[in-house]
Amino acid sequence: MRVNFTVNGRRQEADDVWEGESLLYVLRERMGLPGSKNACEQGECGSCTVRLDGVPVCSCLVAAGQAQDRDIVTVEGLAALAACRTEGGDCASGACGTGLDEARQWRADPARGTDSQTGEGTELSPVQQAFIDAGAVQCGFCTPGLLVAADEMLEANPSPSDADIREALSGNLCRCTGYEKILDAVRLAAARQEGTVSR
């Protein structure tokens, strides 16, 4: 079947989708957006978290066909979303966002210069930057899902308590860090967002 939806602000179309495919599979294998991760495919780890019409969900449990006409933001679109928020733009309109071609460039040409390989110079959202700075990334497999969840939490609750952070991220498993640095990162992002700590 064919599925049309918006990903990170751009209209997309997937063809020949098997009816049992998840949104996660379509994003990863058909859209060239493998940032959302496939750690459990049973809604128990949060690694595949995306925003579906603004709401964080496990994309492994959304049937591809259910995404028809919906608006999806993945980790690949977080920086653009944050930039949009800063500018006060309408983030859901599709006026901004990462184009698919742009997002998949890194894989289209692995021989590109070293800067593109490290992502240096890449625009990051505050929560992405905070995860790097706080040492919240080890293997990184849980990171995209955590970032989408944390970004949404900070959007709704700019000054969360530790208990709020823990509750909001309780659907995202991490096996490497013991979560301490993840808490640090979210606190840091919140503080920077509030302007109490500079970058």
Partner: peptide, 13 residues
């Protein structure tokens, strides 16, 4: 900081 950190937070790793 990790040299792969940026790639990992953007989903590009």
């Amino acid at each position: 900081l990790r040299p792969d950190g940026t790639l990992k937070v953007t989903g590009e790793f």
